[in-house]
Design a protein around this nucleic acid. Sequence first.
RNA 1: GGAGAGGUGGCGGAGUGGUCGAUCGCGCCGGUCUCGAAAACCGGAGUGGGUGCAAGCCCACCGUGGGUUCGAAUCCCACCCUCUCCGCCA
Length: 434
Amino acid sequence: MHDIKAIRENPAAFDAALSRRGLSALSPQILALDADRRAKIVAAETAQAEQNRASKEVGAAKARGDEAEFERLRALVAQSKADIARLTAEADAQDVALRDLLMGIPNLPLPEVPDGKDEAENVEIHRWGTPRAFDFPPREHFEIPAVKPGMDFETAAKLSGSRFVVLKGAVIRVHRALAQFMLDTHIEEHGLTEMWTPVLVKDDAMYGTNQLPKFAEDSYQTTNGWWLIPTSEVTLTNSVAGDILDEAVLPIRMTAHTQCFRSEAGSAGKDTSGMLRQHQFEKVEMVTICTPDTHLAEQDRMRDCAQAILEKLEIPYRTVTLCTGDMGFGAQRTYDLEAWLPGQNTYREISSVSTCGQFQARRMNARYRAAKTETGGGKPEFVATLNGSGLAVGRCLIAVLENGQQADGSVLLPAVLHPYLGGRTKITADGQLA
RNA sequence: GGAGAGGUGGCGGAGUGGUCGAUCGCGCCGGUCUCGAAAACCGGAGUGGGUGCAAGCCCACCGUGGGUUCGAAUCCCACCCUCUCCGCCA
């Protein structure tokens, strides 16, 4: 959510940033609402102050036994009650209206974010590894002989419909190894703290990380009102909602491995084969809570953590900075990591690392108290929040399988996974670990 | 699921209708004292909003939302959460 004071102080800058995201100027509408709201607040508070004064006089009259004056004042106060109720309701309504409006406006891109309409205009900033030269036509993951016995879409369809998968045998073991490997690396080498969180959350959490109010149709809700998280960004980030943190505890760098649930509404026909895009998938997520002056450095750090995973897995990838037209609702800047998928002969998104600045913190009311200095401090300020995949486990499995496939139908597995697989180094063409 | 207890400021803990935004203790910050520190003493200190150049003033907040009343942290209703015991259970 945006800071109304910042918009008030510099509406032109606000509108200019909005236009970079392809939105028309909103500050006139916002400022009009804001002015109206403040006028209503003044009216309501003035009336309330008068009543409070009168009430004290009533009490005083009663105390000195002046019954006539007591009754006169009492009637007066009683009369103004309805007026106050009306004014207060109006002020509240304006407040809600402004909040609703601000809630629906996306975050503003940082100056260094490239302008652009869509993903075609993202800017590559880093490339690692060289795609293997195949002396046979590389297959997509679900067509590799070694994989086929362990990736069962028919059974999943029987159970749940399309966009689900049943994994078995060697394939799920590699999947599990991947998640463990990612977590262990983040914990031991990157200094992140592992968390285990609910995957069912209340409305408030979904508002905090921007899923609500605009993107309700992208998530699933239970009959009693809980939401299934589309990413553990929701639980990790909202873990500090409403808090006033001591600056000394920042930055807080977390990671979690959870199931994620997405309806994929609007993605009909997109990536329908294989397990690239599922309703249910696993992700190792990273979330950082930090001070606003450190968030850019923290974002680079987080990106490096994600890149390190791909490098250890020996998967060629490239990193892009998303252009204004491709950024998510809450992001100020986003790096996407795209893994090389030989079966598709292209790079596909496997991680997205975003800083939201104070955007989510304002929604969640998550603050920190800056250490006192001569110049100030000591006052609560909103924290900055960042989130990134570290990585999407299912997509990472795809990348490992496609990049490791051999002419004979087997798959060679990256060395860092061998310890997690009892020393086994490959999946044979008939689907066995060996 | 059943029974009971409880939700007050960073923490502990008072407060059952009228200057209570809230006694007190601890912790915290500033000062006095000290070579320095501790102790002691003095003083300060919540959050959000509105208004104002500012000092300040005003409004709201004692789990949440309603209600009663001239007036509510205090009374009433609903809900949420926590704890204890019992039951069930991965």
